[in-house]
Amino acid sequence: MRYFARKVAFFLATLWAVVTLNFLIPRLQPGDPAEIMVKRLAGKDSQLDPAQVQAMRAMLGTPDGSLWSQYTGYLGELAHGNFGLSYTYYPFPVTEVIGQAIWWTVVLVVVTQVLSFAVGTVLGAYAAWRRNTRFDSVVTLGSTFLGTLQPFWIALLLIYLLGYTLGWFPTSGGYEAATPGFNGPFIQEAVSHSFLPALALLVVTPIGWVLGMRNTMIMNLGEDYIRLARAKGLPDRRIALGYAARNALLPSVTGFALALGGVLGGAILVETAFDYPGLGRLMGEAVENKDYPLLQTLMLLTTAGVLLANLVADLMYGVLDPRARRAQS
């Protein structure tokens, strides 16, 4: 239990540190933190745009009162989900803009990540179990080859082939005419629009899991406990699943949690290529339009996501591997 408590405490502490640094850094110099922040992001020589400063101030607060009261004010705003107004989508609050985009990404990326992980792990485990057979060679060589291709390039190829040439799937956007919400036409459109970006992700993301799983499992297959399981006369299936694959899965599970945390990074390229209305595209827009409040919040969100993923990875590892619990507590 101590292990889990420590991990949660560590997560909370880091999260708090990140949020506080975000507050402190613009205040280290004298002056208006919102102005300083905008200057820092825009570059020293550029003109200050009052609208931008205004938007920023909604989040960072004004430099009135004691540092402490500013700080509590800031935490209060964050707690209420008030991250300021978006400059691009003025006067919508940042949270609302993000709130709309986030589901697109979560659904697209989480679904593809989970699928990739499942497919990759199963393929990798099977290749390891049948190592040095033709199946193994095909899987290993195939993955290695696909791994050398750029996801963006694959995305373009897919758009060209399945989108323009064959015209099977829409090549950009998230939906057409339907009203967003939980209704048949919308869901159908959303699914068909997400098909190409999902495919682009699905071609590349499983590769890491395939190779990782295969290598760890082959290493595990050489361990004494596997040999012992064979000597015990356990059926192959049991050895493969209960002993070899289960143990080989440990590093992958941690890796998977971390990958989910880093979702945003991976989504940017693909979303941009397909003009898909998710967080990745939003991030691109924020950079392009110098929408700092939005950018700031996205950054905070990403950091929190990575931290959270780390926490989940640690907790899962603790559940799956009894050795970890002791080693660190």
């Binding site: 004494d224 406990y225 040999r227 012992l228 143990n247 440990l250 591997d321 050795r323």
Partner: peptide
């Protein structure tokens, strides 16, 4: 086994 410190599945 020889060196069977590792013969039991650790997890």
């Amino acid at each position: 086994f020889q060196s069977s410190m590792n013969a039991l599945n650790p997890v």
